[in-house]
Design a protein around this nucleic acid. Structure first.
Lengths: 215, 215
DNA sequence: GCAAAAGTGTTGCCCCTACACCCATGT
DNA sequence: ACATGGGTGTAGGGGCAACACTTTTGC
Protein backbone atom coordinates (compact mmCIF):
# COMPACT_ATOMS: atom_id res chain seq x y z
CA UNK A 1 0.00 0.00 0.00
CA UNK A 2 1.38 3.32 -1.11
CA UNK A 3 -0.16 6.45 0.34
CA UNK A 4 0.71 8.56 -2.69
CA UNK A 5 -0.41 6.14 -5.40
CA UNK A 6 -2.43 8.28 -7.77
CA UNK A 7 -4.82 5.44 -8.48
CA UNK A 8 -6.30 5.72 -5.05
CA UNK A 9 -5.09 9.06 -3.74
CA UNK A 10 -7.50 11.68 -2.47
CA UNK A 11 -10.35 9.50 -1.43
CA UNK A 12 -12.72 10.23 1.40
CA UNK A 13 -15.68 8.98 3.37
CA UNK A 14 -19.00 10.72 3.78
CA UNK A 15 -21.11 9.81 6.78
CA UNK A 16 -24.64 10.92 6.04
CA UNK A 17 -27.86 10.61 8.01
CA UNK A 18 -31.44 10.99 6.91
CA UNK A 19 -33.11 12.30 10.04
CA UNK A 20 -36.86 11.87 10.01
CA UNK A 21 -39.71 13.08 12.12
CA UNK A 22 -43.48 13.07 12.03
CA UNK A 23 -45.39 16.28 12.34
CA UNK A 24 -49.18 16.19 12.40
CA UNK A 25 -49.15 12.75 10.82
CA UNK A 26 -46.76 13.66 8.02
CA UNK A 27 -43.35 12.04 7.56
CA UNK A 28 -40.66 14.67 7.13
CA UNK A 29 -36.91 14.70 6.66
CA UNK A 30 -34.45 17.20 8.07
CA UNK A 31 -32.44 19.15 5.52
CA UNK A 32 -29.78 21.81 5.97
CA UNK A 33 -28.70 24.52 3.58
CA UNK A 34 -25.01 24.43 2.73
CA UNK A 35 -22.86 27.51 3.24
CA UNK A 36 -19.84 26.19 1.36
CA UNK A 37 -18.86 24.70 -1.92
CA UNK A 38 -19.41 22.28 -3.45
CA UNK A 39 -23.15 22.68 -3.76
CA UNK A 40 -23.15 26.03 -1.97
CA UNK A 41 -26.70 27.12 -1.10
CA UNK A 42 -28.12 23.71 -1.94
CA UNK A 43 -30.24 21.86 0.55
CA UNK A 44 -28.62 18.65 1.73
CA UNK A 45 -28.82 15.87 4.29
CA UNK A 46 -26.85 16.17 7.50
CA UNK A 47 -23.44 14.67 6.98
CA UNK A 48 -19.95 15.28 5.78
CA UNK A 49 -16.44 13.96 5.77
CA UNK A 50 -15.45 11.37 8.34
CA UNK A 51 -12.37 12.38 10.32
CA UNK A 52 -9.36 10.14 10.68
CA UNK A 53 -9.56 10.03 14.44
CA UNK A 54 -13.16 8.92 14.80
CA UNK A 55 -15.12 5.74 14.23
CA UNK A 56 -18.03 5.79 11.82
CA UNK A 57 -20.77 6.42 14.33
CA UNK A 58 -18.70 9.09 16.05
CA UNK A 59 -18.42 10.85 12.71
CA UNK A 60 -22.14 10.47 12.14
CA UNK A 61 -22.92 12.07 15.48
CA UNK A 62 -20.37 14.84 15.10
CA UNK A 63 -21.73 15.76 11.70
CA UNK A 64 -25.28 15.80 12.97
CA UNK A 65 -24.22 17.97 15.87
CA UNK A 66 -22.19 20.41 13.78
CA UNK A 67 -24.96 20.91 11.27
CA UNK A 68 -28.02 20.92 13.52
CA UNK A 69 -26.97 21.13 17.15
CA UNK A 70 -28.63 17.77 17.81
CA UNK A 71 -26.96 15.26 20.09
CA UNK A 72 -27.31 11.57 20.82
CA UNK A 73 -29.42 10.62 17.86
CA UNK A 74 -29.81 6.87 17.58
CA UNK A 75 -28.98 5.85 14.01
CA UNK A 76 -29.17 2.68 11.95
CA UNK A 77 -27.05 1.80 8.94
CA UNK A 78 -28.90 2.18 5.67
CA UNK A 79 -26.71 1.73 2.57
CA UNK A 80 -23.41 2.51 0.87
CA UNK A 81 -23.25 4.92 -2.06
CA UNK A 82 -20.04 4.85 -4.05
CA UNK A 83 -20.50 5.80 -7.70
CA UNK A 84 -17.32 7.39 -8.91
CA UNK A 85 -18.83 10.72 -9.92
CA UNK A 86 -20.87 11.35 -6.81
CA UNK A 87 -18.68 14.17 -5.52
CA UNK A 88 -17.20 16.83 -7.81
CA UNK A 89 -14.26 17.47 -5.47
CA UNK A 90 -12.74 14.07 -4.92
CA UNK A 91 -13.61 10.41 -4.78
CA UNK A 92 -16.07 10.04 -1.91
CA UNK A 93 -17.86 6.97 -0.62
CA UNK A 94 -20.98 7.66 1.40
CA UNK A 95 -21.94 5.46 4.33
CA UNK A 96 -25.53 6.38 5.04
CA UNK A 97 -27.72 6.06 8.11
CA UNK A 98 -31.23 6.81 9.26
CA UNK A 99 -32.48 8.35 12.49
CA UNK A 100 -35.82 9.54 13.78
CA UNK A 101 -36.62 12.15 16.38
CA UNK A 102 -39.58 13.99 17.77
CA UNK A 103 -39.18 17.41 16.18
CA UNK A 104 -41.43 19.04 18.76
CA UNK A 105 -38.97 18.31 21.55
CA UNK A 106 -35.83 19.70 19.98
CA UNK A 107 -34.45 22.93 18.68
CA UNK A 108 -32.62 22.75 15.35
CA UNK A 109 -29.78 25.23 14.85
CA UNK A 110 -30.57 27.22 11.72
CA UNK A 111 -27.23 28.92 11.33
CA UNK A 112 -23.96 27.17 12.00
CA UNK A 113 -20.41 27.28 10.76
CA UNK A 114 -21.44 25.31 7.70
CA UNK A 115 -25.16 25.83 7.34
CA UNK A 116 -27.31 28.85 6.65
CA UNK A 117 -30.65 27.18 7.26
CA UNK A 118 -32.31 23.99 8.43
CA UNK A 119 -35.84 22.74 8.08
CA UNK A 120 -38.17 19.78 7.92
CA UNK A 121 -39.44 18.80 4.47
CA UNK A 122 -42.31 16.54 3.60
CA UNK A 123 -40.77 13.60 1.83
CA UNK A 124 -42.64 14.26 -1.37
CA UNK A 125 -41.62 17.93 -1.33
CA UNK A 126 -37.88 17.51 -1.10
CA UNK A 127 -36.09 19.88 -3.51
CA UNK A 128 -33.14 18.98 -5.73
CA UNK A 129 -30.39 18.31 -3.21
CA UNK A 130 -26.60 18.39 -3.13
CA UNK A 131 -24.67 15.35 -4.32
CA UNK A 132 -26.78 12.17 -4.63
CA UNK A 133 -28.76 13.00 -1.52
CA UNK A 134 -32.14 12.63 -3.22
CA UNK A 135 -31.29 9.05 -4.01
CA UNK A 136 -29.98 8.52 -0.48
CA UNK A 137 -33.31 9.68 0.96
CA UNK A 138 -35.21 7.25 -1.25
CA UNK A 139 -33.20 4.35 0.12
CA UNK A 140 -33.38 5.75 3.63
CA UNK A 141 -37.17 5.68 3.52
CA UNK A 142 -37.04 2.00 2.58
CA UNK A 143 -34.65 1.31 5.45
CA UNK A 144 -36.89 3.27 7.82
CA UNK A 145 -39.94 1.22 6.89
CA UNK A 146 -38.04 -1.99 7.53
CA UNK A 147 -36.45 -0.87 10.78
CA UNK A 148 -39.60 0.34 12.52
CA UNK A 149 -41.01 -3.16 12.11
CA UNK A 150 -37.96 -4.79 13.64
CA UNK A 151 -36.78 -2.38 16.33
CA UNK A 152 -38.15 0.10 18.83
CA UNK A 153 -36.89 3.13 16.87
CA UNK A 154 -40.18 4.90 17.50
CA UNK A 155 -39.61 4.94 21.23
CA UNK A 156 -38.31 8.50 20.83
CA UNK A 157 -41.84 9.73 20.30
CA UNK A 158 -43.13 8.20 23.50
CA UNK A 159 -40.73 8.69 26.39
CA UNK A 160 -43.71 8.58 28.76
CA UNK A 161 -45.63 5.79 27.05
CA UNK A 162 -48.23 5.76 24.34
CA UNK A 163 -51.76 4.69 23.54
CA UNK A 164 -52.35 2.30 20.69
CA UNK A 165 -54.29 4.84 18.60
CA UNK A 166 -51.38 7.28 18.61
CA UNK A 167 -48.73 4.60 18.01
CA UNK A 168 -50.73 3.31 15.09
CA UNK A 169 -50.97 6.76 13.62
CA UNK A 170 -47.18 7.07 13.62
CA UNK A 171 -46.81 3.71 11.89
CA UNK A 172 -49.40 4.66 9.32
CA UNK A 173 -47.59 7.92 8.62
CA UNK A 174 -44.33 6.14 7.94
CA UNK A 175 -45.63 3.11 6.09
CA UNK A 176 -47.99 5.37 4.20
CA UNK A 177 -51.00 3.14 4.53
CA UNK A 178 -53.94 2.43 6.82
CA UNK A 179 -53.63 -0.43 9.26
CA UNK A 180 -56.36 -2.48 10.91
CA UNK A 181 -56.78 -1.54 14.60
CA UNK A 182 -57.26 -5.07 15.85
CA UNK A 183 -54.46 -6.64 13.84
CA UNK A 184 -52.06 -3.84 14.67
CA UNK A 185 -52.65 -4.27 18.37
CA UNK A 186 -52.20 -8.03 18.26
CA UNK A 187 -49.04 -7.81 16.18
CA UNK A 188 -47.46 -5.25 18.47
CA UNK A 189 -48.31 -7.14 21.62
CA UNK A 190 -46.89 -10.28 20.05
CA UNK A 191 -43.47 -8.67 19.63
CA UNK A 192 -43.03 -8.57 23.38
CA UNK A 193 -41.33 -5.20 23.36
CA UNK A 194 -44.44 -3.49 24.72
CA UNK A 195 -45.92 -3.60 28.20
CA UNK A 196 -49.22 -2.30 29.51
CA UNK A 197 -49.50 0.23 32.34
CA UNK A 198 -52.41 1.05 34.63
CA UNK A 199 -52.83 4.56 33.28
CA UNK A 200 -55.14 5.87 30.64
CA UNK A 201 -55.45 9.02 28.63
CA UNK A 202 -57.51 10.58 25.90
CA UNK A 203 -56.03 10.74 22.43
CA UNK A 204 -58.49 11.79 19.77
CA UNK A 205 -61.74 10.32 20.92
CA UNK A 206 -63.88 10.86 23.96
CA UNK A 207 -63.06 7.52 25.49
CA UNK A 208 -59.86 7.02 27.46
CA UNK A 209 -57.19 4.76 25.96
CA UNK A 210 -54.83 2.61 27.94
CA UNK A 211 -51.19 3.68 28.09
CA UNK A 212 -48.42 1.25 27.10
CA UNK A 213 -44.66 1.53 27.19
CA UNK A 214 -41.74 0.21 25.21
CA UNK A 215 -39.47 -2.06 27.20
CA UNK B 1 -14.37 20.55 1.34
CA UNK B 2 -10.62 20.90 1.36
CA UNK B 3 -8.58 18.09 -0.18
CA UNK B 4 -5.60 18.74 2.06
CA UNK B 5 -7.42 19.08 5.36
CA UNK B 6 -5.40 16.92 7.74
CA UNK B 7 -8.52 15.84 9.58
CA UNK B 8 -9.59 13.73 6.66
CA UNK B 9 -6.53 13.46 4.48
CA UNK B 10 -5.16 10.10 3.41
CA UNK B 11 -8.26 8.02 3.60
CA UNK B 12 -9.04 5.08 1.41
CA UNK B 13 -11.58 2.40 0.58
CA UNK B 14 -11.04 -1.33 0.75
CA UNK B 15 -13.27 -3.53 -1.36
CA UNK B 16 -13.08 -7.02 0.09
CA UNK B 17 -14.81 -10.24 -0.87
CA UNK B 18 -15.22 -13.46 1.08
CA UNK B 19 -15.31 -16.06 -1.69
CA UNK B 20 -16.81 -19.33 -0.57
CA UNK B 21 -17.05 -22.79 -2.01
CA UNK B 22 -18.16 -26.22 -0.90
CA UNK B 23 -15.85 -29.16 -1.27
CA UNK B 24 -17.06 -32.61 -0.28
CA UNK B 25 -19.81 -31.09 1.82
CA UNK B 26 -17.53 -28.66 3.67
CA UNK B 27 -17.90 -24.88 3.48
CA UNK B 28 -14.59 -23.24 2.67
CA UNK B 29 -13.33 -19.72 2.10
CA UNK B 30 -10.67 -18.59 -0.35
CA UNK B 31 -7.62 -16.93 1.16
CA UNK B 32 -4.53 -15.50 -0.48
CA UNK B 33 -1.10 -15.00 0.99
CA UNK B 34 0.13 -11.41 0.82
CA UNK B 35 3.46 -10.59 -0.80
CA UNK B 36 3.59 -7.01 0.39
CA UNK B 37 3.39 -4.93 3.50
CA UNK B 38 1.43 -4.33 5.54
CA UNK B 39 0.75 -7.86 6.76
CA UNK B 40 3.37 -9.34 4.45
CA UNK B 41 3.12 -13.15 4.40
CA UNK B 42 -0.21 -13.11 6.20
CA UNK B 43 -3.19 -14.89 4.75
CA UNK B 44 -6.00 -12.52 3.79
CA UNK B 45 -9.28 -12.24 1.94
CA UNK B 46 -9.27 -11.14 -1.68
CA UNK B 47 -9.52 -7.40 -1.84
CA UNK B 48 -7.64 -4.17 -1.75
CA UNK B 49 -7.83 -0.48 -2.43
CA UNK B 50 -10.61 0.84 -4.63
CA UNK B 51 -9.29 2.95 -7.51
CA UNK B 52 -10.58 6.41 -8.23
CA UNK B 53 -11.70 5.56 -11.72
CA UNK B 54 -13.89 2.58 -10.90
CA UNK B 55 -17.23 1.97 -9.23
CA UNK B 56 -17.40 -0.27 -6.19
CA UNK B 57 -18.27 -3.50 -7.96
CA UNK B 58 -15.67 -2.83 -10.63
CA UNK B 59 -13.09 -2.56 -7.88
CA UNK B 60 -14.36 -5.74 -6.28
CA UNK B 61 -13.98 -7.64 -9.52
CA UNK B 62 -10.60 -6.19 -10.37
CA UNK B 63 -9.24 -7.11 -6.95
CA UNK B 64 -10.58 -10.63 -7.21
CA UNK B 65 -9.04 -10.96 -10.64
CA UNK B 66 -5.67 -9.53 -9.66
CA UNK B 67 -5.34 -11.76 -6.63
CA UNK B 68 -6.81 -15.01 -7.92
CA UNK B 69 -7.25 -14.82 -11.69
CA UNK B 70 -10.99 -15.32 -11.24
CA UNK B 71 -13.43 -13.36 -13.39
CA UNK B 72 -17.11 -12.55 -13.30
CA UNK B 73 -17.82 -13.58 -9.74
CA UNK B 74 -21.31 -12.59 -8.71
CA UNK B 75 -21.07 -10.80 -5.37
CA UNK B 76 -23.51 -9.46 -2.77
CA UNK B 77 -22.91 -6.64 -0.33
CA UNK B 78 -22.26 -7.84 3.18
CA UNK B 79 -21.21 -5.09 5.62
CA UNK B 80 -19.10 -2.00 6.21
CA UNK B 81 -16.05 -2.14 8.49
CA UNK B 82 -14.66 1.20 9.53
CA UNK B 83 -12.96 1.15 12.93
CA UNK B 84 -10.26 3.76 12.94
CA UNK B 85 -7.35 1.42 13.66
CA UNK B 86 -8.19 -1.27 11.14
CA UNK B 87 -5.31 -0.48 8.80
CA UNK B 88 -1.83 0.43 10.08
CA UNK B 89 -1.02 2.44 6.96
CA UNK B 90 -3.83 4.92 6.68
CA UNK B 91 -7.48 5.35 7.46
CA UNK B 92 -9.29 2.69 5.46
CA UNK B 93 -12.98 1.85 5.30
CA UNK B 94 -13.79 -1.65 4.09
CA UNK B 95 -16.87 -2.31 1.99
CA UNK B 96 -17.25 -6.08 2.11
CA UNK B 97 -18.99 -8.57 -0.15
CA UNK B 98 -19.62 -12.27 -0.44
CA UNK B 99 -19.42 -14.58 -3.44
CA UNK B 100 -19.62 -18.31 -3.98
CA UNK B 101 -18.13 -20.44 -6.71
CA UNK B 102 -17.64 -24.09 -7.55
CA UNK B 103 -13.97 -24.57 -6.78
CA UNK B 104 -13.78 -27.71 -8.91
CA UNK B 105 -14.48 -25.75 -12.10
CA UNK B 106 -11.87 -23.01 -11.70
CA UNK B 107 -8.16 -22.62 -11.43
CA UNK B 108 -6.94 -20.23 -8.75
CA UNK B 109 -3.71 -18.38 -9.52
CA UNK B 110 -1.29 -19.20 -6.70
CA UNK B 111 1.35 -16.64 -7.55
CA UNK B 112 0.51 -13.16 -8.75
CA UNK B 113 1.98 -9.70 -8.54
CA UNK B 114 0.67 -9.37 -5.01
CA UNK B 115 0.15 -12.91 -3.76
CA UNK B 116 2.49 -15.79 -3.10
CA UNK B 117 -0.18 -18.41 -2.47
CA UNK B 118 -3.91 -19.04 -2.53
CA UNK B 119 -5.98 -21.79 -1.03
CA UNK B 120 -9.34 -22.88 0.31
CA UNK B 121 -9.71 -23.05 4.10
CA UNK B 122 -12.41 -24.74 6.10
CA UNK B 123 -14.20 -21.95 7.90
CA UNK B 124 -13.29 -23.30 11.32
CA UNK B 125 -9.65 -23.63 10.33
CA UNK B 126 -9.01 -20.10 9.17
CA UNK B 127 -5.67 -18.80 10.53
CA UNK B 128 -5.05 -15.35 11.99
CA UNK B 129 -5.53 -13.08 9.00
CA UNK B 130 -4.36 -9.66 7.89
CA UNK B 131 -6.31 -6.60 9.07
CA UNK B 132 -9.74 -7.39 10.52
CA UNK B 133 -10.39 -10.07 7.94
CA UNK B 134 -11.26 -12.73 10.52
CA UNK B 135 -14.11 -10.55 11.71
CA UNK B 136 -15.13 -9.85 8.13
CA UNK B 137 -15.43 -13.58 7.44
CA UNK B 138 -17.64 -14.07 10.49
CA UNK B 139 -20.06 -11.48 9.19
CA UNK B 140 -19.75 -12.81 5.66
CA UNK B 141 -20.91 -16.24 6.79
CA UNK B 142 -24.00 -14.66 8.32
CA UNK B 143 -24.68 -12.79 5.10
CA UNK B 144 -24.15 -15.96 3.08
CA UNK B 145 -26.71 -17.88 5.15
CA UNK B 146 -29.26 -15.13 4.62
CA UNK B 147 -28.60 -14.69 0.92
CA UNK B 148 -28.88 -18.34 -0.11
CA UNK B 149 -32.41 -18.34 1.29
CA UNK B 150 -33.40 -15.26 -0.71
CA UNK B 151 -31.51 -15.55 -3.98
CA UNK B 152 -30.27 -18.14 -6.45
CA UNK B 153 -26.62 -17.66 -5.47
CA UNK B 154 -26.11 -21.43 -5.49
CA UNK B 155 -26.87 -21.64 -9.18
CA UNK B 156 -23.10 -21.61 -9.81
CA UNK B 157 -22.88 -25.17 -8.56
CA UNK B 158 -25.46 -26.46 -10.97
CA UNK B 159 -25.05 -25.01 -14.45
CA UNK B 160 -26.61 -28.19 -15.86
CA UNK B 161 -29.30 -28.69 -13.25
CA UNK B 162 -29.39 -30.48 -9.95
CA UNK B 163 -31.22 -33.17 -8.05
CA UNK B 164 -32.89 -32.33 -4.77
CA UNK B 165 -30.60 -34.54 -2.71
CA UNK B 166 -27.50 -32.73 -3.92
CA UNK B 167 -29.04 -29.28 -3.63
CA UNK B 168 -30.10 -30.07 -0.10
CA UNK B 169 -26.59 -31.21 0.77
CA UNK B 170 -25.20 -27.83 -0.31
CA UNK B 171 -27.73 -26.00 1.81
CA UNK B 172 -26.98 -28.19 4.79
CA UNK B 173 -23.26 -27.55 4.38
CA UNK B 174 -23.75 -23.81 4.47
CA UNK B 175 -26.45 -23.60 7.08
CA UNK B 176 -24.60 -26.18 9.12
CA UNK B 177 -27.65 -28.19 10.02
CA UNK B 178 -29.76 -31.08 8.76
CA UNK B 179 -32.93 -30.27 6.86
CA UNK B 180 -36.03 -32.39 6.37
CA UNK B 181 -36.21 -33.81 2.82
CA UNK B 182 -39.93 -33.26 2.38
CA UNK B 183 -40.04 -29.76 3.81
CA UNK B 184 -36.96 -28.71 1.88
CA UNK B 185 -38.46 -29.84 -1.39
CA UNK B 186 -41.76 -28.09 -0.76
CA UNK B 187 -40.11 -24.88 0.31
CA UNK B 188 -37.84 -24.77 -2.72
CA UNK B 189 -40.63 -25.54 -5.16
CA UNK B 190 -42.71 -22.81 -3.52
CA UNK B 191 -40.11 -20.17 -4.36
CA UNK B 192 -40.87 -20.59 -8.06
CA UNK B 193 -37.25 -20.18 -9.08
CA UNK B 194 -36.92 -23.89 -9.80
CA UNK B 195 -38.32 -25.94 -12.66
CA UNK B 196 -38.42 -29.70 -13.22
CA UNK B 197 -36.86 -31.41 -16.25
CA UNK B 198 -37.52 -34.81 -17.76
CA UNK B 199 -34.07 -36.12 -16.95
CA UNK B 200 -32.87 -38.16 -14.03
CA UNK B 201 -29.55 -39.09 -12.57
CA UNK B 202 -28.01 -40.95 -9.70
CA UNK B 203 -26.59 -38.90 -6.88
CA UNK B 204 -25.66 -40.97 -3.86
CA UNK B 205 -28.22 -43.73 -3.80
CA UNK B 206 -29.08 -46.52 -6.22
CA UNK B 207 -32.32 -44.92 -7.25
CA UNK B 208 -32.38 -42.21 -9.87
CA UNK B 209 -33.33 -38.68 -8.83
CA UNK B 210 -35.12 -36.18 -11.00
CA UNK B 211 -33.11 -33.24 -12.33
CA UNK B 212 -34.30 -29.67 -11.75
CA UNK B 213 -32.97 -26.34 -12.92
CA UNK B 214 -32.85 -22.82 -11.64
CA UNK B 215 -34.76 -20.38 -13.76
C1' DG C 1 -33.92 -60.12 0.33
C1' DC C 2 -31.73 -56.35 2.09
C1' DA C 3 -29.43 -52.06 2.44
C1' DA C 4 -29.47 -47.29 0.92
C1' DA C 5 -31.19 -43.50 -0.85
C1' DA C 6 -35.42 -41.21 -3.35
C1' DG C 7 -39.97 -39.88 -3.23
C1' DT C 8 -44.35 -38.50 -1.18
C1' DG C 9 -48.80 -36.40 2.31
C1' DT C 10 -50.85 -35.05 6.61
C1' DT C 11 -51.25 -32.55 10.77
C1' DG C 12 -50.75 -28.82 13.94
C1' DC C 13 -48.97 -24.27 14.97
C1' DC C 14 -48.24 -19.56 14.15
C1' DC C 15 -48.75 -15.42 11.83
C1' DC C 16 -51.30 -12.62 9.01
C1' DT C 17 -55.51 -10.66 6.97
C1' DA C 18 -60.24 -9.51 6.72
C1' DC C 19 -64.09 -8.24 8.94
C1' DA C 20 -68.52 -6.40 12.70
C1' DC C 21 -70.14 -5.32 16.90
C1' DC C 22 -70.25 -3.26 21.60
C1' DC C 23 -68.40 0.38 24.92
C1' DA C 24 -67.44 4.87 27.02
C1' DT C 25 -67.94 9.57 26.81
C1' DG C 26 -68.82 14.53 25.44
C1' DT C 27 -72.13 17.19 23.16
C1' DA D 1 -79.72 10.06 21.57
C1' DC D 2 -76.08 10.39 18.82
C1' DA D 3 -71.55 10.92 17.09
C1' DT D 4 -66.78 9.74 17.81
C1' DG D 5 -63.24 7.07 18.56
C1' DG D 6 -61.61 2.83 21.75
C1' DG D 7 -61.73 -1.95 22.50
C1' DT D 8 -62.33 -6.87 21.32
C1' DG D 9 -62.88 -12.10 18.75
C1' DT D 10 -63.27 -15.22 14.97
C1' DA D 11 -62.38 -17.55 10.70
C1' DG D 12 -59.53 -18.65 6.62
C1' DG D 13 -55.03 -18.97 4.21
C1' DG D 14 -50.00 -19.60 3.89
C1' DG D 15 -45.67 -20.92 5.61
C1' DC D 16 -43.15 -23.86 8.53
C1' DA D 17 -41.89 -27.94 11.35
C1' DA D 18 -42.59 -32.61 12.67
C1' DC D 19 -43.22 -37.08 11.31
C1' DA D 20 -43.50 -42.73 8.53
C1' DC D 21 -44.09 -45.45 4.86
C1' DT D 22 -43.31 -46.99 -0.03
C1' DT D 23 -40.25 -47.34 -4.22
C1' DT D 24 -36.18 -48.33 -6.85
C1' DT D 25 -32.12 -50.66 -7.56
C1' DG D 26 -27.33 -52.54 -6.80
C1' DC D 27 -25.36 -55.97 -4.26
Amino acid sequence: MDVTNSKYEHQGIHVITSIFTIERGILKVLLIKRKNNPYKNYWALTGGALYNDEDLEEGVNREIYEKTGLKNIQVKFSKVFGKKGRSPVMRMIAITYIGIIDASTVEIAKDTLKTSNADWFKIDEVPKLAYDHNEIIEEAIKTLKEEILKTNLLKVFFPDGFTFPELQKIYESILNKKLDRRNFRKKMLNTNIIIATEEEMIFEGKKKAKIYKFK
